[in-house]
Amino acid sequence: MKLVFNYLIFPGFLFSAVVGLISGWFDRKLTARIQWRRGPVWYQNFLDLIKLFSKEIIIPTEAKFTFFISPFVGVCASVIVATMLGRVLVNPSESFIGDLIVLVYLLVIPAIAFILGASSSGNPLASVGASREMKLILGYELPFILSILTIIIKTGSIKLEAILNHQIVYGSHIASFSGIVAFLVAFLCAQAKLGFVPFDISEAEQEIMAGTLIEYSGPLLALFKLTKAILLYIMPIFLIVLFIGKDTSLKFLFLKYIGLITLIILLKNTNPRLKIEQAIKFFWGPVSFLAAVSVILALLGW
C-alpha cells in the first residue's frame, strides 16, 4: 500500500507532476524575462493541461493502437523513475526497484514512447521527427553512459543509495576533477534528453511542425506534455543524486534544483537549434572525448 502511495502521490506521480509543471512555469517566466516580456502566471501550465484534457481527440485515419498506448507508457515510465529518485533522496538507506543501470534504461522508455507514438500516426512529418529523436538518442547515449561509468568507478557500486551515501561521507562527486568533467557531459546530455534548444530537433516547430507530436491532440497530447514536465523534474534531480548529493536537506535540495533548472533554461535561451548531424557530431566528438577524459581521470583516482 505504501508503495502504491509512493508511486501515485509522493514522490511519484502527483508530486513530480506538480513540481514539473511549476518548473515549466519557471522556464516560461524566465524565458519571458530574458526576452523582455512579462510571462504567465504561476498556474498557467495547470490551466493549459486542464484545457487539453477537456478537448476532443482527433485520431488520424491511419493511426494504429500504439498511438493510444504510447502516451500512457511514457507517463508511467517517467513516474517510476521519479519514484526511484525521490525515495532514495527521502531515505538514503534503502533501495527501491532498481539500480543506476536500470535507471538509465528506464529513462529511455519515454523517448521510445515518443518514437512509437509518432510512427503510429502515419504522418510523414512525425516519421521525420521520430527518426531525429532516435538519432539524437544515439548521439547522447554514448557520452551519457561514459559519464555514468565515471560515477560507478568513483563509487564502486551501482546502487543509488550507495552512490548517495558515498557522497555524504566523502563529499560531492562534482568536487573532483573527473566529477566536474563528467557533470558537464551529463548536463549536456540532460539538455538533449529534455529535448530543449539547442537539441529540440525532433520537435522543431518552425520546420516540421512539432514533429513527433504533430498528430496528437486533446488528452493524449496532455499526457505527453505531462511526460515532458515530469522529465523536467527528473533530470535535475538525477544530476543532483549523481553529482552533488552531499547535503540532501530540503533547503539545499531546493537551492540546487533551482540552480540547475536556471542553468538549463539559460542554455536553452542563448542557443540556436542545431541540425541533427551537427548534434550527432557534437556528441560523438567533443562531448564523448570529454567523457572519456573523465573516465580516465576517475580510473587514475582523481
Partner: peptide
Amino acid sequence: ISLRKDAIFLG
C-alpha cells in the same frame, strides 16, 4: 472524451 477521425495534417 469525444473522438473524431480525420486525415493526417500536412500543412
